[in-house]
Computed example of a mutant assay.
Amino acid sequence: MTESNFKLASRTTIAILALVVIGLVLIVVSLWLTEGFWSQLCSQLSTALLVGGIWTGVYEWFMRKDFINVNREQAKEILDRIKLAQGEESIGLYEVYDDSNDFNYSSLLLQSRQLTILLNDGRTWISTHSEDIKKRLRDREKSTTFLVLHPEAKMLEVMAIKVDSTPANLRAKIAESVKMLRNLSDSDSNVEILGHHLFNPQSMFIGDSIAVVTPYYAARGRRTVPLFRFGDSGDHSYYRKLMEDLHDLKNDAVDISDYERE
């Protein structure tokens, strides 16, 4: 409690006690006078002062109790937010979008000198961002790696069930993605198109110092997914772990830049 709050509480308590004491004194006076105008006046005043004092005391008690409870809740909320902020800072979480479609990939695509992108079949995302991808792939100073599911990956069978499709349709989408990337690039483009046989728990976009992640739901169907943007905040940052993860995945992947639809 601050000094000003303490003074205010002390004054309120003294005022309540004064009302009660004066009320009791007036009761004694009214009994001593026994009857007459002054006796009735003292009796009525004593009743009013006692009721007012007691009512003020009860009200003050409940108000302070509520005030204390509110302060405790606010303090807990502040501490929780501090802990969350510390956690966000330690892993380098900079931004969160509740809808991944609201994120603008242009800066990541056009400014990152090195960029690694992990997708499932990749067709929709590549088509949506084809103009920025084309500008990037025509820039010789930038290197780009696309990692998608291998056309022969067993994961395609599971994914087909999840998205209500077939492995053949998913292979066709992968072939379309490879074809689009070939058309968007030229002979001088520094681009890799790799396929892997493992499982994608999320889409990832790893630039020079920024990582963008969109998780996948476990159940069937398509729903809006959130997006998380991480920065390189140090050795323990999530960015570094994601970068290492994709580096290791590249070692398990093979070139599919010549893959065509069957």
Rank of each mutant, 00 (worst) to 15 (best):
M159E: 08
A153W: 03
I117K: 15
L156W: 02
N169Y: 05
L184N: 11
S106Q: 13
L170A: 10
A153M: 00
M180G: 06
I82A: 04
K162H: 05
S90D: 05
L156K: 04
E77A: 08
S130C: 03
K76L: 10
S177G: 05
I133P: 02
R136C: 07
S100Y: 12
E131D: 13
K142T: 03
E176Q: 14
M155A: 05
I133H: 00
S90W: 04
I133T: 00
I174S: 04
N71M: 10
D66N: 15
S165E: 13
H150V: 00
I133L: 15
F62S: 04
D164G: 05
S130E: 15
L119V: 15
H129A: 09
L137W: 08
Y97I: 02
L137E: 13
M155K: 03
I117S: 14
D132I: 03
I78H: 12
E73C: 01
V158M: 04
E176G: 04
P167S: 05
V148I: 13
T144Y: 05
S90G: 01
R72P: 00
I117V: 15
L194R: 01
L184D: 06
L147T: 06
K173E: 11
L93V: 06
F62D: 04
T128K: 15
D132Y: 12
R140I: 07
V96A: 06
Q114P: 02
V191P: 11
S112T: 09
V70E: 11
L115T: 09
